Every structure is written in structure tokens, then in C-alpha cells.
Amino acid sequence: MSTNDPRSSDTMTTTTVPARLDGRVALVTGGSRGIGEAVALRLAAEGADVVVTYLNSAERAEAVAARITATGRRGWALRADSADPEEVRAAVEAVAERFGRLDILVNNAGAGYVGPIEDTGPADVDRVLEINVRAPYLYARAAVAHLAEGGRIVTIGSCMAKRAAFPGGSLYATSKAATIGLTKALARELGPRGITVNVVHPGPIDTDMNPADGPSAGFQSGFTAVGGFGRPEDVAATVAHLAGAEGRYITGAEIAVDGGFAV
């Protein structure tokens, strides 16, 4: 299950990899921490200029941007509320204006929610669907005006979209299941333009919000085939593959990075 939330930047390591994304510009939503941070650093390590959006974690986002810049790439931390349609549109336009292009969109920003359906209010539903469903759609809508042939859209889904292993996840699972439909339909629509669209489903990933030594870690690990948590870098490696030239023939795909959670 991906909470799309945090492990602080000082615990992340930048992987040394071939510069396969030279000249490319990537936008990673919710890129100040956790999976988003790892994805941003991996794309930069492979040669991309990377913009990370954040809502409240300005200091962390600036630290990620600084680490990207330290690799010799251009990094930028951009505040954007994924629940606000106008801020979503403006964020994409700001990236295109500042860098002159946009090649890779990673829809990572997300809202987690677990609780009994009878305790889930309309405000909870609105918040989760606004961020986990509407925002990826609107980011993609804004991005396609700038993506050229070879463009990439990767959305971070969740293992809970594929397997309801425990109760309380109906709202979150609903929102992440929607990313599957979005991915497949967009892949069909954008394929003739040479743009690929894929969704990556993380399983239990070791972040500040969902630590591998947390109170529910043993419970979650028990649902995986490997018996443990993954790292944000595991997800980032898959995203980077999809974002590069080697991912050109992968589209409309659901790729699990979940330790066998959905087996």
C-alpha cells in the first residue's frame, strides 16, 4: 500500500545509473518525500531536470531540489495543491514555461485513508477522490498539451487497487482502482502520439508514514510473498525504466512493486 508519504530526504541515497534521460524534463507531484522524493532523485540521476511539487513541506522540497541541482541537473520545488484544479493547471504551465518543455509526468501526490465505511464522511470522500483521482486526470490533461512523441505519464497506484487484504480500505482502494481505468484509457488515446501511460502499484513501502518497524508492519508484511517491506527506491527504479527509452513499448500496463502482496 502506498501512502505516498515520507521518509526524510537525509535518508535517501542517489543511485549511480547511466544518464538515459539527458535533455528531458520531469514533473513529480508530491515529490518532497517518500516515494516521490526517491523518484525525483532517480530521474535526476539518470539525467533529467526535475520539478517536485509540494503542499506544506517547503523545506523538504527545497532540499530535494538542491540535491537534484547537486547532480548537475536543474531542480525546482514548486508549491501546488493537488486538490485545486487551477493550481494543478498552473503548475504544469509553470514547468513548461520555465524549462521550455515537459517530457515526463509522474502522478505521485496522494491522500491516504483507512477506516470503516460507516465512519467515512462526505468530506473524507471528497478529499481522497480530489487528490487521488481528479488530480492525476487534470495533471495529465494539462500535460498532454506539452508532451511530444516519447512523452511519459506514470501514475502511482496501490496494491490495494488489486487486493482487498484487510477491512477499512474501501475509499482508498476505490480511488486507486480509478488510476487503472485512467491509465488504460489514456494509453489507448495517446498511443498514436507516441506517449506511453502506465500505473505502478507499490505494496508496503518503508516511509515515515508507514515505517517498516511501525505497529502494523508485521501485519502488512504477512500479506506479501517476500515477508517484508520495500524501499522507495524500489518503486523509483521501475518508474525510471518506464520513463526512459527502454519503456517505449510498455503502455497501459499495471506494474506491481509490492513484494507479492497481490499474488
Rank of each mutant, 00 (worst) to 15 (best):
R188E: 10
A237S: 10
T224F: 01
S175M: 06
G247A: 05
V17H: 06
E233F: 09
T179D: 15
A44K: 07
L43W: 04
G31P: 06
F166K: 09
P122F: 12
R134L: 12
A245V: 13
A178S: 13
A173L: 05
V28Y: 08
G110Q: 07
R248G: 07
P192G: 02
R141V: 14
A38L: 10
S32C: 04
L27D: 00
N132V: 08
V133Q: 11
V257H: 04
R24Y: 02
T3K: 12
G100A: 02
V197N: 03
G218Q: 08
V114L: 12
G168Y: 05
R98H: 12
G23K: 01
Y172L: 04
R152Y: 10
V25E: 00
G168P: 09
G34P: 08
S32Y: 05
S158Q: 11
Y137A: 15
R79L: 00
V263N: 09
A243G: 03
P211Y: 03
V144T: 13
T183D: 02
I255K: 04
N108G: 01
D258I: 08
R89K: 14
R42T: 12
G36C: 06
G34F: 06
T15K: 12
R98G: 01
T196M: 00
P167D: 09
K184V: 11
S82F: 04
S216F: 15
A111W: 08
E130R: 15
A140C: 09
T174V: 12
R134N: 08
F261S: 07
P85S: 09
V144H: 04
A225M: 12
S170Q: 07
G228Y: 01
T14H: 07
A148H: 05
A90I: 08
K184E: 15
G194F: 00
D206N: 13
T3L: 11
